[in-house]
Write a protein that binds this DNA or RNA. Structure first.
Lengths: 102, 102
DNA sequence: ACGGTTGTTCGATAACTACCGAACTGGCAC
DNA sequence: GTGCCAGTTCGGTAGTTATCGAACAACCGT
């Protein structure tokens, strides 16, 4: 598979980011990426079907929350920390805090 | 009309807040409330139909973003700044900043 | 080339959401 | 009470989204 299209930093829209993070599954993915740095799709599925997770990763990716790098047969995801912190300083800090009700 | 049911501070869920703010119309409402302190529904409609605005206010209210106080025939809305700042410190600060793309 | 693994795409369904006109409710002033 | 005003609720429609199985594509090791 060829590399994904990711939105450039200047194309990232706040409402899309908020929407992407407003789903418990996707918020959980973001938090795990925050904890673990990066992870493959399979490492984050929590038993959910692959097709469902693929959908959620697409939403996160197209919103600009996550970057997916292809490494052989696996897709390695990471948070776009730098871009998001620059655009929306403090947003990830509060959203990714564990221990708070989702 | 009788007073609305608002979620208690402890019932406010992050994902619902994010969802409520992920709509450009509702985000705009929140920003105007931030600027103006409080406002009636009619003052925030920007020409949209009343029934549409009523829907958006309901989403904001049930997510815990807005509190609606009934004052005679008008409904006065205000941001739940204190509750949201306590629960999700920094969230409103970044989301309500004008000048950034929605 | 084959088999196993990783993840995407397709297709279908169910649930939800936005939108708006029309009818309605409650408050206020006269 | 009559009329007006502020908002809500209802009903319907159109568009979106979540979900998941099944089929598919790409990569890797043997």
């Amino acid at each position: 598979m060829r590399a994904y299209r990711h939105p450039a930093s200047g194309e990232i829209e706040l409402t899309r980011v908020l929407y992407a993070l407003s789903d418990p599954v996707r918020l959980d993915v973001a938090r795990q990426l925050h904890r673990d740095g990066e992870a493959t799709c399979a490492a984050l599925d929590r038993g959910r079907p692959k097709s469902s997770m693929s959908h959620h990763f697409r939403v996160l990716r197209e919103a600009g929350v996550v970057r997916t790098r292809i490494e052989g047969a696996t897709h390695v995801n990471s948070l776009r920390r730098d871009d998001l912190d620059a655009l929306f300083p403090g947003l990830l800090d509060v959203v990714l805090r564990e221990r708070q009700r989702v």
